[in-house]
Nucleic acid binder design. Structure first.
Ligand code: MN
Ligand code: MN
Ligand code: MN
Ligand code: MN
Lengths: 218, 218
DNA sequence: ACTTATTTTTAGCCTTGTCTAAAAATAAAA
DNA sequence: TTTTATTTTTAGACAAGGCTAAAAATAAGT
C-alpha cells in the first residue's frame, strides 16, 4: 500500500514519461508537482528502494512495470471518479479535477470495481482521457491536435490537453465539448490561428487553443 | 481546514461526549482511537489552541460549539457516503464502514451538497444512525435498546449499537435489519436472554445481542 | 492520613515528507 | 579545453503525529 505522496509521485512520473524520450528528470518532476528538486531526489530514491522505478544518480528515472501499473491504477481511479462526478452528480467538467485528486487516493479494490460497473464501464473520462483497465492497460486511440489539421479537414473533438477551468469554460462559451464536430475553414501561417466551423457558427481560434484540443479526423 | 488526524480526534470526542457525563478523559480517547494517551494529550492541546475544544490539565476535554459542528460535519459525510455505498453501489451494510472512514475526509462542500441531493436527502444511514444536517444538527428520535423491552412488547428495529461485520452478519442470518418488526415472547431474568418473534420465526437472542439492537416500541 | 494504584502529562526520540543552503556532477559556452 | 551555467544531490533543519519511559496529579484503599 502506498502513501498519498508516493501515489502522487508515481502518477506524475507516469504522465511525464508519456511525452519524454528517455528517463524523467528530477527538475521536471519538481516543476509538475510544485515542490523542490531536493524533495524529489529523496522520494525517488525511496521509490527505487521499493522497486517502483529505476534510478541512477544524475540520470533521471523510469518506472518499472510494477510502478507503471500502480500509477495507472491511481489514474484509473481519478478518471472513474471524474465520470461519477459529471454523470451522476452533474458537476461541470471544469469542476471535477480537484475533487478527483482527493478521491483517487481512496484505497478499496472493491469500491472501484463497483463504481466502474455502476458507471457502465466507461472508456473515457469527461475530458476525453482514456480510463486504464483493471490491469493498467490503456488502449490508445490515434488522435491529433487540432493545430495539426489543414484547411478543409473535418474532425470531431475527442479530448483536451489543457484541463484548466479557464480553458474548459472558454470552450463552453464556443459550444465545443467532447463529441463536437468541426471543420477547419482557414489557417493563418504566420500566427497559427484558425477559422473553424462548429454547427452553423464560425469563429477564430488561437494557436494556443488549437494546440490544446484533440481531434479525430473524419 | 483540518487534517485527517484532527478530524478523527474531533469525531471520536464527539461520540464519546454522547455517552459520558462531564469531560471526555484522555484515556478513553486513546482507547477508542487505538493510540497512546501521550499522543492524545499532544493533539488535544493543539485542538484547544485552535479553539475546537476546551481543555484543562487532568480534567478532560469538551468540544466547543465550533468543534462540535466540525465533528458533526465529518459524521455527516461518513453517513452520507455509507448511504451511497449501500443504495447505489449495492454494498452490504457490513462492508461500508472502513471505506466511509476514508471518504469522510474528502474536502468539498459542493460534493456533499450534491451527494446529499443525489441520495434524496436521507435522514438515516444504513445502520439507522441519523445524518446531521448542513449545520451539524441531528434530530434525535427516541429509541431504546431491545434489552429494555419486556414480555409481549412489540417494536421495530431502527438501528444497531455495535456495527462490527460479525454482528451485522449475525443479524442477517436471522433476517433482522432496519425496519424489521419484532415481538418479545419471553425474557429470562438470570441471563437477560430473550425469545423474540420475527415474521413467523421465533428464536433465542442473547443479552449481548439485545443490548446492541435499537428499537422503537409500537 | 498515608500508602498504593491509576491516570495524565512531560521529555525525548522517531518517521514521513518537506525545505534551504551548499557541494558535486553534468551541460553549455567561450 | 577551460570557464561558466545549469541540474542534481547531499547535509541539516523543521512540522506533524506518533511512541516509550519517567515524572506528576489524582483517585482508591487501608
Ligand atoms: Mn483530472
Ligand atoms: Mn480528466
Ligand atoms: Mn460507519
Ligand atoms: Mn453507519
Amino acid at each position: 500500500m502506498f502513501s498519498l505522496a508516493e501515489e502522487n509521485y508515481l502518477k506524475t512520473i507516469y504522465h511525464l514519461e508519456q511525452d519524454t524520450k528517455g528517463g524523467v528528470s528530477t527538475n521536471s518532476i519538481a516543476d509538475k508537482m510544485d515542490t523542490k528538486p531536493s524533495s524529489v531526489t529523496d522520494m525517488v530514491q525511496k521509490l527505487a528502494e521499493k522497486g517502483m522505478l529505476s534510478y541512477k544518480k544524475y540520470k533521471g528515472t523510469t518506472l518499472t512495470t510494477k510502478g507503471r501499473k500502480t500509477a495507472a491504477g491511481v489514474i484509473r481511479k481519478h478518471r472513474l471518479w471524474e465520470v461519477f462526478l459529471v454523470d451522476k452528480l452533474k458537476f461541470h467538467w471544469d469542476e471535477v479535477h480537484e475533487i478527483a485528486e482527493q478521491l483517487e487516493h481512496i484505497h478499496s479494490e472493491e469500491l472501484i470495481t463497483r463504481l466502474d460497473k455502476y458507471l457502465g464501464h466507461p472508456d473515457f473520462d469527461p475530458h476525453g482521457d482514456p480510463i486504464p483497465d483493471k490491469n493498467g492497460n490503456v488502449k490508445k486511440t490515434e488522435k491529433k491536435l487540432l493545430s495539426e489539421l489543414t484547411k478543409k479537414q473535418k474532425g470531431v473533438c475527442v479530448g483536451v490537453k489543457e484541463t484548466s477551468s479557464e480553458f474548459l469554460q472558454y470552450l463552453d462559451k464556443r459550444n465545443i465539448t467532447i463529441g463536437t464536430k468541426l471543420t477547419v475553414l482557414g489557417k493563418e501561417f504566420f500566427d497559427g490561428s484558425m477559422i473553424i466551423q462548429v454547427g452553423r457558427d464560425q469563429f477564430f481560434i488561437s494557436k494556443k487553443t488549437a494546440e490544446n484540443l484533440y481531434v479525430q479526423t473524419t
